[in-house]
Write a protein that binds this DNA or RNA. Structure first.
Length: 634
RNA sequence: GCCGAAAUAGCUCAGCUGGUAGAGCAACUGACUUGUAAUCAGUAGGUCGCGGGUUCAAGUCCUGCUUUCGGCACCA
C-alpha cells in the first residue's frame, strides 16, 4: 500500500500502482467524470499513469487552465489523426497547445491545402472523437522511436535532437501514433467542442531558412458555451479592428502608393493632435525639454552610432550632392548631437530631452498591418542624461509617469525586465549587473511586480518593457525604458563633475506610447471607436428638429460651443430626427444635441450620450460647464 | 521576404461552368416638415487593382506585377 496525500492535506492509503483515475473513482464517480489529468508530486501526468510510491496527488478537473491546455493538445493530436486519414502522405512537424487553441504544422507534399478543406478535416475529427478511442502512452528507447518514425523526416529530426538516454514517449489513439511528452486526455471522447480556425504557412522550427509547412490552427473547449463565447470574442475583435473603424470613422487611410505609410485624415488628425498636446503638456510639467531633430542625416552619423553596421537593411537612404544620407530609424543619434552642442555640468542632471520624432524603418512587406506595423511612425521618445546614482530615482519617476498616463486610458499593464544577452553585448558585466540591479531596485522601491526575461535585453543595455492589456484582453508592448551603455561611449558624451573633471554620463532611452500611430490603433480598438470626449474628433452633433424653424437657434448654440473650443458638427438635413440620431450614433459622437421649439424658447439644449437611450434637457450654460469639466478630467 | 487567400461604384458586397456589369447604403434632385437608431420617388456613379496572353468574345481562364488579408520569419 502507498500513501496518497491530497491537496487539502488529507492522506489515504491505496494499492501500489493505482492510477489517479482510480483514486478519483474511489472518492466519487462524479469526480472521476470531471478528471482530465493529475499532478503527481507536482508533475502533470496522464490520469491512467500508475502511481508507484507515496505521493502528493492533485486531480486536474476540467475547469482548470491546465485542463484546457491538455484538451487542446489532445485536440491537435486528433486533428493530426484526421489529417493522416485523409492525406496519408502527410508528414507531421509539431502540434502544441497555444494561448487560444492549438495548431499542427504539416507537410502536405505537393498538395496545397485551402480553407475549403478544413470542414472535411473537422468532420473527420468529429467522427474519430465520437469513436471514444482511448489514448495510450508508451515509453521507448531512442532507437525504437527512430524506427517508429522512420518515414517521418521531421519527427526523426526531433528524436535525433533529444539527448541520448532520454526516455521517449509515444502516444497512440487508434492507428495513429505521435511523438509526444504528454500528458493527454485518457480518451478522445472529451473532444467535442472544437473548430479549425485558419490556415497559414509556418517555417519548420521557426527558422526562415527551413522549409515552410502548412499550419492548421484550431481551438477547443470543454463546453459548447465556452466555444461560442470565444467565437463571439473573435467577432467582437473583428468589429473593433482599427483598420475597419479607421475607414468608417474617417480617421486615416492607406494608399498603395505608400505601403506602410499612413495618411491622417482631418478627423484622425484631431485625435492625434489631442494625444500629442496631452503628451507635451505632461512632459513639460515633468521637467522635460523638447527638441526636434532632422529626419535625414549624413551616413557618417549612422556609422558612429552603429546603426550603419547593424541595421542598414532597414534604413532608407538617398544620395545628396554625392554624399550618402539616411532617413532616421531612431531619434537618438540626433539627440546625441544636441547634447554635444553644450558643455554639461552635473548640476544640469537629470537632463530630460523629449522628442516626438518621425522615424522610418523599412519593415518587411509581409509585416505591415494597419497602424500596428508601419514604415513610418512617430516615436514619443526622450533621452535622459544623468549620473549612475540617479538611475533608481529616475526610473521610479518614469514608472510613476507611465502609470499615470496609461491609467488615463484605462489600460492596465505589467512590466518585464530584460537582462544581458548571453553572447552579443557590449560593456563590462559588472556594469550590466549594476544597471540591471538599478532597474529592479527602482521597481521594488515602488512595490511594482515584474517578470524577468533573462538574456532578452538589447545589446547596449538592459530594459524595462511595459505590456498593456486592452479591453479585448490582448497584450501590446508600448512603453519601454532602456539603459544605454553604448551611445554615450560612441559619441564621447561628457559632463563636468563636482571636481571639475570630465565624466561619462549615463543615458536612458524611453518611450511611453512607443509609436503614436500604433498607440492610436490600440486606442481605436480599445474604445471600439467610441473615444472619450477629450479625444473624440467630433464631440457634439447639433441636430435641428426642423431645419427651417430651428437653424437660427442651432447656429447660435454652435457659435457658443465653438467659442468654448468644443468640436461641433451640425446636421441640418431635411430628414427625420431618428435618421439623424442614428447617423450620429454610428459615428460614435459622444454628445448629440437636439434643438427644437422647446429648447429655442428657453435657451436650453436636449442632449443624449453616445450609446445611451435617455436624453436630458438642460440650459446651454450648464451643458457647456458639464462637458468642459468632463474634458478637463479626461 | 516566405506560404496561402483576396482585389468589382465612395462603402459593404453579388456576378454559376467565358457572351462587354448589379444590389443595399452613401451622394445628388424632388416630394414630405419631421421630437430620439433608416420617409418615399427619381438621377448619377465603374478602364471590374495594373500589364501581358488564350479566345470570335475575358470581371470570369492563364501569366507577371502591385496592394491588402491570415499566419510564419523579422520588429534595433
Amino acid at each position: 500500500m502507498i500513501d496518497i496525500k491530497f491537496a487539502d492535506g488529507s492522506v489515504k492509503k491505496f494499492e501500489r500502482g493505482i492510477s489517479a483515475e482510480a483514486v478519483a473513482a474511489a472518492i466519487s464517480p462524479s469526480l472521476k467524470k470531471r478528471c482530465v489529468a493529475a499532478k503527481v508530486n507536482g508533475v502533470l501526468v496522464d490520469l491512467v499513469r500508475p502511481i508507484e510510491s507515496d505521493a502528493d496527488l492533485e486531480l486536474i478537473l476540467d475547469d482548470r487552465p491546465e485542463a484546457l491546455e491538455i484538451l487542446r493538445h489532445s485536440s491537435a493530436h486528433l486533428m493530426a489523426q484526421a489529417v493522416k486519414s485523409l492525406y496519408p502522405e502527410a508528414h507531421f512537424g509539431v502540434g502544441p497547445a497555444i494561448e487560444e487553441g492549438y495548431y499542427y504544422d504539416i507537410d502536405f507534399g505537393d498538395k496545397v491545402l485551402t480553407d475549403s478543406d478544413l470542414p472535411e478535416i473537422e468532420k473527420a475529427m468529429a467522427k474519430l472523437a465520437s469513436g471514444n478511442q482511448s489514448v495510450s502512452r508508451r515509453e521507448v528507447s531512442k532507437a525504437e522511436a527512430l524506427k517508429v518514425f522512420a518515414d517521418d523526416p521531421y519527427k526523426t529530426e526531433l528524436i535525433n535532437d533529444l539527448p541520448e538516454g532520454e526516455i521517449i514517449t509515444l502516444y497512440s489513439q487508434g492507428d495513429f501514433t505521435d511523438l509526444c511528452r504528454g500528458p493527454h486526455l485518457p480518451s478522445t471522447k472529451w473532444i467535442k467542442h472544437f473548430k479549425l480556425t485558419s490556415l497559414a504557412g509556418a517555417y519548420w522550427r521557426g527558422d526562415s531558412k527551413n522549409k515552410q509547412l502548412t499550419r492548421i490552427y484550431g481551438t477547443s473547449f470543454f463546453s459548447a458555451e465556452e466555444l461560442q463565447s470565444y467565437l463571439k470574442l473573435v467577432e467582437e475583435r473583428k468589429k473593433r479592428d482599427h483598420r475597419k473603424l479607421g475607414k468608417e470613422l474617417d480617421l486615416f487611410m492607406l494608399s498603395e502608393y505608400g505601403p506602410g505609410f499612413p495618411f491622417w485624415l482631418p478627423k484622425g488628425m484631431i485625435l492625434r493632435r489631442e494625444l500629442e498636446a496631452f503628451w507635451y503638456k505632461v512632459h513639460l510639467k515633468e521637467g522635460y525639454q523638447l527638441i526636434q531633430t532632422p529626419i535625414m542625416l549624413n551616413k557618417e552619423l549612422w556609422v558612429i552610432s552603429g546603426h550603419w553596421m547593424n541595421y542598414r537593411e532597414n534604413m532608407y537612404t538617398s544620395v545628396i550632392d554625392d554624399q550618402e544620407f539616411a532617413i532616421k530609424p531612431m531619434n537618438c543619434p540626433g539627440g546625441m548631437l544636441v547634447y554635444k552642442r553644450d558643455i554639461h555640468s552635473y548640476k544640469d542632471f537629470p537632463l530630460k530631452v523629449g522628442e516626438l520624432g518621425l522615424v522610418h524603418r523599412h519593415e518587411a512587406s509581409g509585416a505591415l498591418n494597419g497602424l500596428f506595423r508601419v514604415r513610418n511612425f512617430t516615436q514619443d521618445d526622450a533621452h535622459i542624461f544623468m549620473t549612475e546614482d540617479m538611475i533608481v530615482h529616475e526610473i521610479a519617476e518614469l514608472v510613476r509617469l507611465y502609470d499615470y498616463m496609461y491609467s488615463v486610458f484605462g489600460l492596465s499593464y505589467h512590466i518585464e525586465l530584460s537582462t544581458r544577452p548571453l553572447e552579443k553585448f557590449i560593456g563590462e558585466i559588472a556594469t550590466w549587473d549594476r544597471a540591471e540591479k538599478a532597474l529592479a531596485d527602482a521597481l521594488k522601491s515602488m512595490g511594482k511586480e515584474y517578470k524577468v526575461n533573462p538574456g532578452d535585453g538589447a545589446f547596449y543595455g538592459p530594459k524595462l518593457d511595459f505590456k498593456l492589456r486592452d479591453s479585448m484582453n490582448r497584450i501590446w508592448q508600448c512603453g519601454t525604458i532602456q539603459l544605454d551603455m553604448n551611445l554615450p561611449e560612441r559619441f564621447d558624451l561628457t559632463y563636468v563633475d563636482a571636481n571639475g573633471e570630465k565624466k561619462r554620463p549615463v543615458m536612458l532611452h524611453r518611450a511611453l506610447f512607443g509609436s503614436i500611430e500604433r498607440f492610436i490603433g490600440i486606442l481605436i480598438e480599445h474604445y471600439a471607436g467610441a473615444f472619450p470626449t477629450w479625444l473624440a474628433p467630433v464631440q457634439i452633433k447639433l441636430i435641428a428638429v426642423n431645419p427651417d424653424l430651428h437653424k437660427a437657434y442651432a447656429d447660435r448654440v454652435m457659435k457658443t460651443l465653438l467659442d468654448r473650443e468644443l468640436r461641433v458638427e451640425t446636421d441640418y438635413r431635411e430628414e427625420k430626427l431618428g435618421y439623424k440620431i442614428r447617423e450620429a450614433q454610428t459615428q460614435k459622437i459622444p454628445y448629440q444635441i437636439i434643438l427644437g421649439d422647446r429648447e429655442a424658447q428657453e435657451e436650453m439644449v436636449t442632449f443624449r450620450r453616445y450609446g445611451k437611450e435617455e436624453s436630458f434637457t438642460v440650459s446651454l450654460n450648464d451643458f457647456v460647464e458639464m462637458i468642459q469639466k468632463e474634458i478637463a478630467n479626461k
